[in-house]
């Protein structure tokens, strides 16, 4: 079963932005994330993962199909709803996807405390049916 785990850009209430963390706190956070990544890769559970550049580097494009496309640059008022990154995993069960999300959420922040970032766990649709109807 494939799941996409999504992390948004927004801050958690009570946790300062990463730019204000001590260098060793940033390092510990990165190490925890890397350990999860390596475990998923070693298990053959990791299909893909990417981190995205922040909203400042984003453009929003719309096109009505007739005139020129409309390209909007930041800053964007709802920047906390921007995707920060994703993991695409292929795992045995939903429980396992939730376990990975929980560990990602609990990666340490300032003072070594879990950041508690919100992780969305989204099943990936598949083409074929599960059973005959």
């Amino acid at each position: 079963m494939k799941y996409m785990l999504l992390m948004n850009h927004g801050q958690v209430a009570g946790v300062p932005p990463m730019s204000e963390w001590a260098p060793e706190e940033v390092q510990a956070h990165g190490a925890a994330m890397m350990a999860i990544h390596q475990e998923l890769a070693a298990n053959g559970e990791l299909v893909g993962a990417e981190g995205l550049a922040g909203p400042d580097a984003a453009k929003i494009v719309t096109h009505d199909g007739a005139g020129a496309p409309v390209v909007t640059d930041g800053p964007f008022p709802e920047s906390k709803e921007f995707l920060a990154g994703y993991w695409l995993v292929d795992v045995e069960s939903e429980e396992r996807a939730i376990e990975i999300a929980a560990r990602t959420s609990a990666a340490p922040g300032p003072g070594g405390r879990a950041v508690g970032k919100e992780i969305q766990v989204r099943p990936v649709m598949h083409a074929s049916p599960d059973a005959e109807l």
């Binding site: 494939k2 890769a41 070693a42 298990n43 053959g44 559970e45 990791l46 299909v47 893909g48 292929d90």
Partner: peptide, 15 residues
């Protein structure tokens, strides 16, 4: 067949 990268499958089999 499982729509995953070859490296992912190689790792799963090796595990």
């Amino acid at each position: 067949a499982f729509l995953v990268p070859e490296a992912t499958m190689a790792q799963r089999i090796s595990r």
